[in-house]
Design a protein around this nucleic acid. Structure first.
Lengths: 269, 269
DNA sequence: GAGTAATTTGACAATTCGTCAAAATTGGCG
DNA sequence: CGCCAATTTTGACGAATTGTCAAATTACTC
C-alpha cells in the first residue's frame, strides 16, 4: 500500500482471508484515481496552478478524502513521478530488444529517451519538477524511496547493456581501470549527455540564440563520440547509425503511445 | 532600470540634468537591497518557504513597497538568477585567462563550473529553480530577456575559446561540416555533459545507489573524451591534465570567494 | 514652514492549506 | 428489512499568503 493513511483505511482481515467489500476495493483504487485526476491538471495548468481542491473536484470528492491517501500535494507529485519513471523504464527495456549488437542496444536507449520526451512530455516534465528542493523536502521518506528504486531500475537497464558488451568482447576494459569503474563512467556520461541535453533543449531560451538549432543531432553525435573514444565496437558509422535510428524510431513511438494509453497502475511501496 | 514600476517611481528630470535627491537614490538602490534580503532567505529556507512578507520584514518595509519594484516573487527570483549567471560568467572569463593553450582554457571553464557549484551553491540552486515552468510562466517578458542575455554571454565565452582554437590550428574542421556547426556541437556537448552531470550529482538520489561515487572524475574524463574524439590538440594526457587542474583550482576558488563577497550589483534591463 | 507630489502603508478580499468533529455511509447481523 | 457499530466523507475552521488600493505619511520645492 502506497497510502499514507491518516485514519485506518484498511480493515483487519479478521478470521482468515476475507473477500474485500466493494467499498474497500474502491478505496484501494483511489490512489490511482487521484493520480489519474491530477496528471492532466498538472499537464494543462502547470503544477503550481493545481490545488488539492481542483484535484478533488476533478474526481468528485473533497480535499479531506484525498488527504486520506496522500499527505500533501508534493507527495502526489512524487507518486506521479514514480509512475513516469516506470513508463520510461518500460520504454528503455523495449528499446534494448530492438538492437542487433550491443552498441545498437545502447543507441536504442538514447533514442528511447528522445521519444520519451516527445511522446510523453508531461511525464518528462513531472520528472523534472520532482528534482527540486521545494518539492523534495516536503515529501515522505517512503515515497522518496519508491522513486529512487524506479530510477535505479532505469540505470540497471543501461548498465546491463554495457556489461553484456564487455562480456561478449565488443568493449574491452583497459588495464588501468576496473570494469565497474568503466561501466559507471559510461552510464554517467551517457546519462549526463542525454539528460542534460534534453533538459537544456526544453528549458533554455539561450539555445536558439546561440545558434544551436539541432540539439538532437548534437546529442546523438556526442554520445557516439563518447562511445568511440572508449572503443566500443562496432565504431560509429554515420549512415548505418542513421538507418538504424530511422528503423527503430517509429517502433519506439508506437510503444510510447501504447504505454501512455495503458491503464495506469498505482505505485506501491 | 530593472524595476517594473507599478506607480511612477521616477521623477521627470524636468529642466535638464538634475541631481538625484537622497530619496530617489534610496529607491534606485532598493532593487538591490531586495535581492540582498531575499538571497539568504532562499538559501536558508528554500524558495517556497520564502514569502513576500518575510523578505519585507528582512529589510524593514512592507510588502507594498516591494511590489513597487517587482511584480511578484517569481520576478525577484529571475533577477536573482540573472545575478547568479553573471557571477558564473565572471568566473568563466577569469578561467579563460588561466590557460596556456586553447585546450587548457576549455578545461579551465569546466573546472570553473565545478567551482561555481561548490563555492556558490546557492547561486547554482537558484539558476536551477529558475528553469522551471511554474516560475517561468509568471515572470515578465523584460526580465526573461535580461536573463537570456546573461546566459548568452556565458555561451559566448566558451564559443570564443573554441573559435580561437580553430583559428590557431589546435582544432581542425572536417570538410563535411561548417565551422559554425562544429562550434555549436562542442559547446552544446560540453554544456550538456557538465551541466547535466552536476545537476544529476546534486539532485539524483540514485547516483550513489548506482555506485557512481566520483561523478566529478567522470565528468572530466568524459569531456576530454569528447574533445579527443574531434581531435582537439593537445590530446588528453592524464597526468598533465591532473597537474593543470590542481594548479588552477585554488585560483578559481579564490576568485569565486571574491566574487561572492563583492557588493552585489543590480541587474539592469 | 506650507503646499504639492510621490511613496509607503496596512487593511481587505481572495486563495489555498491541513485539521478535525460531526454527518453520512457502509456492511454485518438478527 | 432495518438497526447498529465501524468507517469514511464532509465541509467549516484557523492559519498563511497573495496582490491591490485608498488613505496616511513622507519628501521635496519654493
Amino acid at each position: 500500500m502506497a497510502e499514507s493513511t491518516t485514519h485506518h483505511l484498511t480493515r483487519e482481515n479478521s478470521g482468515g482471508g476475507r473477500v474485500l467489500t466493494p467499498k474497500q476495493l474502491e478505496i484501494r483504487n483511489r490512489g490511482t484515481r487521484i493520480l489519474d485526476a491530477a496528471f492532466p491538471l498538472v499537464r494543462e495548468h502547470g503544477l503550481s496552478a493545481v490545488s488539492m481542491e481542483s484535484i478533488a473536484r476533478a474526481m468528485d470528492c473533497t480535499r479531506g478524502t484525498i488527504y486520506n491517501h496522500f499527505s500533501n500535494k508534493e507527495d502526489i507529485l512524487l507518486a506521479l513521478a514514480a509512475r513516469s519513471v516506470r513508463r520510461r523504464m518500460e520504454l528503455f527495456r523495449y528499446a534494448v530488444t530492438l538492437g542487433q549488437d550491443s552498441r545498437q542496444c545502447c543507441a536504442a536507449i538514447g533514442i528511447a529517451a528522445e521519444v520519451y520526451v516527445d511522446c510523453l512530455p508531461d511525464d518528462f516534465s513531472i520528472e523534472q519538477i520532482t528534482r527540486h528542493d521545494p518539492v523534495w523536502q516536503k515529501t515522505s521518506q517512503a515515497r522518496r524511496k519508491v522513486l529512487a528504486e524506479c530510477e535505479q531500475q532505469c540505470i540497471d537497464c543501461i548498465s546491463g547493456v554495457i556489461s553484456s558488451a564487455i562480456r561478449n568482447g565488443d568493449l574491452v576494459v583497459a588495464k588501468s581501470v576496473t570494469q565497474e569503474t568503466l561501466v559507471q563512467r559510461i552510464v554517467f556520461g551517457l546519462w549526463s549527455l542525454v539528460y542534460g541535453g534534453l533538459v537544456l533543449e526544453s528549458t533554455s531560451p539561450s539555445l536558439g540564440m546561440a545558434g544551436i538549432s539541432q540539439p538532437r543531432v548534437a546529442i546523438r553525435r556526442n554520445c557516439n563520440a563518447l562511445l568511440d573514444d572508449i572503443g566500443w565496437r562496432p565504431l560509429f558509422d554515420p549512415s548505418a547509425y542513421q538507418k538504424y535510428v530511422s528503423s527503430i524510431t517509429p517502433k519506439l513511438r508506437r510503444q510510447a503511445k501504447s504505454i501512455q494509453k495503458r491503464t495506469s497502475q498505482e505505485v506501491s511501496a
